[in-house]
Simulated assay, not measured.
Amino acid sequence: MKTLTGNQQLVKQINKTLVLETILHEAPISRADISQKVGLNKGTVSSLVNELLEDQLIYESGPGQSSGGRRPVILLFNDKAGFSIGIDLGVNYILGVLTDLRGNIIVEVNKKLTVRSYEVVIEILQSVISDLINAAPQSHYGIVGIGIGVPGLVNNHGEVLVAPNLGWKNINLREEIENCFDIPVLIENEANAGAYGEKLYGAGKENDNILYISAGIGIGVGIILNGKLFYGMNGFSGEAGHMIVQVNGKDCTCGSSGCWELYASEKALLEEARKLKLTGITEETLSIELLLELANSGNEDIINLFHSIGMYLGVGINNIINIFNPEQVIIGNRLTMAKDWLEKSIEKFIKNHTMKYHQKDLIISFSKHAYYSAAIGVSAQMIDQFLNNAVSILDAQ
């Protein structure tokens, strides 16, 4: 029977979490090194480590190097104690990944979407999740969570308020998926998920003030300020794809006109390509992959089209740089495939139009994980949620 008071229990949970995080980020590490790093006495650390071993969140790997006395036992984080699922629910695809507890991709499933009705998409989404669950190796904790990145406004209850490019409104996606699989679910804006993935595992690891540009069928922006995702008052920050860059411009599905994503997205690229009436290319075969093949083979019309898309990406990036003065801008999602044809146009526009003070020390990068950023980012959010909850839940048992 536990005899700790509430305050004692809370202190223990905080210390146990601290020890676990130290092993997660510093392993391989010994008990003595943990004690030195976190400032807890060796007896307390040893007791907490023994509990984490029983919880199977860590394991011993054998003796390490001796500094004069007994050789210390080395501790490692058990990244195979459970697995997480991350889903990037795009407008024309569903990308699902199964990761271990360090975010390493174990299995991936990619489905092309040719329809956008909720009933059909949710059926495909459930199929992708089922495939990933069935592919997961045996583990102590099984699937710890399912994270889903969605191109739209998401509230704190997991409801998709509006996803203009999908034509969805007021969809309680979290409730539906949790009821189907009985596993904790997080619904996140896909640009926020991509920003988190790049900050944790990708091009943004070294910086704390980052703008992540998710350039796919639409455009979203994930904002990281002082190392943390910035959500705004109601969680709706980052809808820069609907920033107006052309007065009296093209009509947008959001209800406005002249929005950035109408000129700088994958959708804009494909629409402009249709106007070229390319020989032998049908609506079914037209894709960014095909356009890249044409550009790489020297088609000047397509090369110029990519340059135009890059220029318009630069227009929007310039605007948000001038607002946020970030350390780094990371461009992600499907348009990263066209990096070689976009990069110079983006950099040229920013060099010529962004305030010089903002350009000083600014890093402009393409995503390290290309179009995987959102999927691994939202998977990582579920891992964090699991690890943050695991200590308190296990201690209460």
Rank of each mutant, 00 (worst) to 15 (best):
T3M: 13
V11T: 13
I14Y: 10
T17G: 12
T17C: 11
T17S: 15
L18G: 05
L20D: 06
L24P: 07
H25T: 14
I29N: 06
I34V: 03
Q36S: 15
Q36H: 15
V38S: 02
L40R: 01
N41W: 00
T44H: 05
T44F: 04
S46W: 05
V49N: 01
N50D: 14
E51G: 02
E51D: 14
L53I: 05
L53M: 01
S61P: 01
P63R: 08
Q65H: 13
G68H: 08
R70N: 14
R70T: 13
V73W: 09
I74H: 10
N78Q: 04
K80H: 11
K80M: 06
A81Q: 02
G82V: 03
G86L: 00
I87E: 02
L95M: 09
G96M: 07
G96Q: 00
D100E: 06
L101F: 05
I105T: 00
I106L: 08
V109Q: 10
K112Y: 15
R116N: 15
S117G: 10
E123T: 15
Q126R: 11
D131W: 08
L132Y: 07
N134L: 14
A136N: 09
A136G: 05
Q138N: 14
Y141W: 03
G142C: 05
G145V: 06
I148E: 02
P151F: 03
N156R: 12
P164T: 01
W168M: 10
K169A: 14
N170W: 07
N170R: 10
I171W: 04
I171V: 15
N172P: 03
E175Y: 00
E175K: 04
N179Q: 10
E190Q: 10
A195N: 08
Y196F: 15
L200S: 09
Y201Q: 03
N207H: 03
Y212C: 04
Y212R: 02
Y212P: 06
Y212L: 06
I213G: 00
I213V: 06
G216S: 05
G216Q: 03
G218T: 00
G222S: 09
I223W: 04
N226A: 09
K228Y: 05
F230A: 07
Y231Q: 11
Y231I: 05
G235H: 02
E239Q: 10
E239P: 01
A240H: 13
H242W: 10
Q246G: 06
K250H: 12
T253V: 14
C254T: 08
C254K: 08
W260C: 02
L262Y: 02
L269T: 08
E272Y: 12
K275Q: 13
L276N: 12
L278W: 11
L278Q: 11
I281H: 08
T282A: 12
E283K: 15
L286T: 00
I288L: 14
L290G: 09
A295S: 14
N304K: 15
F306D: 11
M311I: 14
L313G: 02
G314D: 07
G316F: 02
N318V: 10
N318Q: 13
I320Y: 01
I321L: 10
I323E: 03
V329L: 01
I330L: 04
I331S: 00
K339V: 08
S345N: 14
K351G: 09
T354P: 05
T354A: 08
K356R: 11
S367T: 06
S373N: 07
A374F: 01
A375V: 03
A375P: 00
A390R: 00
I393A: 14
L394Q: 09
